[in-house]
Each structure stands twice: as C-alpha cells, then as structure tokens.
C-alpha cells in the first residue's frame, strides 16, 4: 500500500497519520448510490476508507448525470452499485469496494449494516432513512443523514446513545415521494456529500458531529443547529423500532 497517496491529508493536523490509520481500518456501508451516495463513495474511496459496501437496487438514469461526478452517458441503464464497484476500484486499488444491487428492506437491513463502523445515507426518501435510523440505533452503529432538495442541503451525524437521532427532530411519517419529481440543483449533492463525509470521518475519529447542518447553496447561507435528545423519543429513548417492525405507510417486505 502506498501511504504517500494520502500525504497531503495526513499533513492536516485535525486528521493526521492517526486519522489515516483509523480510516484505512474502517468499514463503511453506503445505502443508496444516487447524487449523494455516489459522490460520498468517491470522496471516501479517494480518502482511503479501508472497506466500502454500496447498496442500491437502481440503474443509472440520464436524470442522475447532472449531479454525480462519476457516472457518465455510457453507464445509463447499468446498475449503479456495480458501476461504482468497478470505477472506484480503479481510483483506489488498495481498498476493498463491493457493490450490491439490492433493495434495502426492514428484513435485510440489520444484516447489511452488521459489520459497518458507520452507515452513510444516500437514499432518496424518508421511509428508508427512518429504517436506517431504527437499525443503527438498535445495533449501536453511527450513521450520517444527508438530504437535498432544490437549493437546500442538510446533514446530521448520529451516534447512538450519545447524540439525538433522526426521530428526535422529525416524528412525522411522510408519504413516499417520487424521487424523479424532486428538484435538485446539480452541484448540491456534491457539497452535501463532502459535508456528510467529513461528519462521518469525525465520528470515526471519536469527535462529536455538528448537530443539524443546513445550507442554501444558492443564497450561500450556512447554519448549524444544536440538537438535544427528545425526551421519550420513540426510537432512541423508548427503543421502539417502528420502521423495523412494520414500515408505516410502505409495503416493504
């Protein structure tokens, strides 16, 4: 392994050789490989995460191309997870990258995340995010929410038993929206993936994530909201995992 390829980031004092050593030993699971998930996988591959597993059941669509940095026109119609496995392996052959073309459901998610040190959200709907939240809180695995819409991006690092969870700030179960109908500015997922990745790396290095980070890229407005655990939160306090038991409003089997 050529450690020299990481020389410039090892010089960053917040990260250092210790950060690189930790990253190289880390196993990340990325659920969803659209705008956010694909860009986060590129970043983490280049930064030297030791093992990356990508889960996505979809194929590359022409409407994905404006907001990803790795898919191209020749990839349209091919499975996102398999394309990423192949292309990321060429970026960094020292690490292990595996893509799985499968849908994440309440029945398979705990198996999917079982060996993960951290889970990254690359999904496009709130039902799956609440499912990730349930599975990660139950299995004591940190995860990083990230979402985009129009010009707005949001990220939130979640450490079970330490920080608030996604249900602490959102208890409303939304209806499934059509991801093809969601407006997204092309470079927004790239910025969001960068912020999501750095929050994930900080958690892996034992640092505290920065609450809920909200930004409007068009208006260059960035804010960070401190969070408190919601008393009696159905998920992280009462340990009732509704989305693992029965996906409300969804027919996931």
């Amino acid at each position: 392994m050529d450690i020299d390829r990481y020389k410039k980031q090892i010089l960053v004092k917040e990260f250092s050789k210790n950060g690189q050593d930790i990253l190289l030993q880390t196993h990340v699971v990325i659920i969803g490989a659209g705008g956010i998930g694909s860009n986060s996988s590129v970043i983490l591959t280049r930064m030297g995460v030791g093992q990356i597993e990508l889960i996505d059941d979809d194929v590359v669509d022409v409407t994905n191309l404006h907001r990803t940095s790795i898919f191209n026109e020749n990839d349209v119609g091919k499975p996102k997870s398999k394309i990423l496995e192949k292309k990321l392996g060429k970026i960094n052959s020292d690490i292990r990258i595996v893509g799985y073309k499968k849908k994440v459901t309440r029945k398979n998610i705990e198996k999917i995340i079982r060996n993960a040190d951290i889970v990254l959200d690359g999904t496009d709907n709130m039902q799956t995010r609440f499912l990730i939240n349930d599975a990660c809180i139950k299995n004591n695995i940190p995860w990083v929410y990230a979402g985009v819409r129009e010009t707005i991006g949001m990220t939130m690092g979640i450490i079970p038993n330490k920080t608030p969870c996604l249900r602490c700030i959102s208890n409303i179960i939304p209806s499934r929206s059509d991801p093809h109908g969601v407006a997204v500015l092309g470079n927004l997922p790239i910025v969001t993936a960068s912020i999501q990745s750095i929050e994930a790396i900080k958690i892996l290095l034992g640092k505290q994530p920065y609450g809920l980070i909200i930004y409007d890229l068009w208006r260059q407005h960035f804010e960070q909201i401190d969070l408190k655990k919601k008393p009696y939160c159905i998920c992280c306090s009462r340990k009732k995992f509704e989305f693992l038991q029965r996906n409300p409003g969804d027919s996931s089997k």
Binding site: G32, G35, D124, R149, P179
Partner: peptide
C-alpha cells in the same frame, strides 16, 4: 427564533 425549511428527502 429561526425558521428553516422542512427536512429534505432527495438524494
């Protein structure tokens, strides 16, 4: 009091 848009769900 600061008001922000709802949680965003796109990916």
């Amino acid at each position: 009091i600061t008001i922000f848009p709802p949680i965003v769900s796109g990916g």
